[in-house]
């Protein structure tokens, strides 16, 4: 459960102050899929960074499973991110010089995961994105879609509770993008991870349970699709 309470983010001081986020509040249940939609510059990435504890809000706070991120020590937030969150970016951010295996191992090393099953977990993650046979290839030799799949493998190897994806299909053609999205949704189902996707793609947004539309830092609309249960109840 993530609760975003009255988040405001202001850049600059007094006269030149710029409000990137203005009093944002929302609540996300575990395992939900969330789309943050809006034009470029509307504050989508900023919101995502604040929700993950990477950035600090000027006002308001974020509560994850009852813990207020803004009250945690940097060390605790780091551990929290290492163990419970992961990220997928538009520009992939895979290390071209390293092999796929080494790229996927990184979160496990950061989280200080020990033991012999480390290797197995990496191979499982690579298998989940269909990159098993590329384990020992350098990441720079992969295609764009493969790179993003590698980034997804890296994001799921930790079995995180929360996956943040910032325009994950922005650098991909639509066919490849669709496959990536299918992959993300299937992971949401199998792992039960909460998925927060930043996108301008309305079609993609429509597949998510919660759709947050931002405009100039404010919530323009907040749609929560009814669950099958509620739909069924409503029909009765």
């Amino acid at each position: 459960m993530i609760e975003v309470a009255n988040i405001t983010k202001t850049y600059g001081k007094k006269d030149s102050a710029f409000t990137a986020l203005d009093d944002i509040s929302l609540s996300i249940k575990d395992g939900a899929t969330v789309a943050i939609i809006g034009k470029s510059g509307s504050g989508k990435s900023t919101l995502m960074h604040i929700m993950s504890g990477l950035d600090t809000p000027s006002d308001g706070h974020v509560t994850v499973d009852g813990t207020v991120l803004q009250q945690m020590k940097p060390k605790q937030i780091d551990a929290f991110r290492a163990e419970q969150m992961s990220f997928i970016f538009q520009a992939f951010f895979v290390e071209g010089n390293q092999t796929c295996y080494q790229n996927v191992m990184l979160p496990l090393e950061i989280a200080e995961v020990r033991g012999r099953d480390r290797k197995q977990r990496v191979m499982d993650a690579l298998a989940a994105v269909d990159l098993s046979e590329k384990a020992n290839s350098r990441a720079r030799n992969l295609s764009g879609g493969q790179k993003q799949r590698l980034a997804i493998a890296r994001a799921i190897v930790n079995r995180p509770k929360l996956i943040f994806a910032d325009e994950p299909t922005g650098n991909l053609d639509s066919a490849t993008g669709d496959k990536i999205i299918d992959l993300l949704f299937s992971i949401n189902k199998t792992l039960g991870s909460t998925l927060v996707i930043v996108t301008h793609d309305d079609e993609l947004a429509a597949r998510c349970k919660i759709q947050v539309r931002l405009k100039d830092g404010k919530i323009d609309s907040l749609v929560t699709k009814p669950t099958r249960k509620t739909v069924a109840r409503a029909k009765k």
Partner: peptide, 16 residues
């Protein structure tokens, strides 16, 4: 810079 940013996002501690 990118690699460092990513490692920090993934929760790598300053000390590490």
């Amino acid at each position: 810079i990118r690699e460092i940013g990513l490692m920090k996002a993934l929760g790598m501690r300053k000390r590490d």
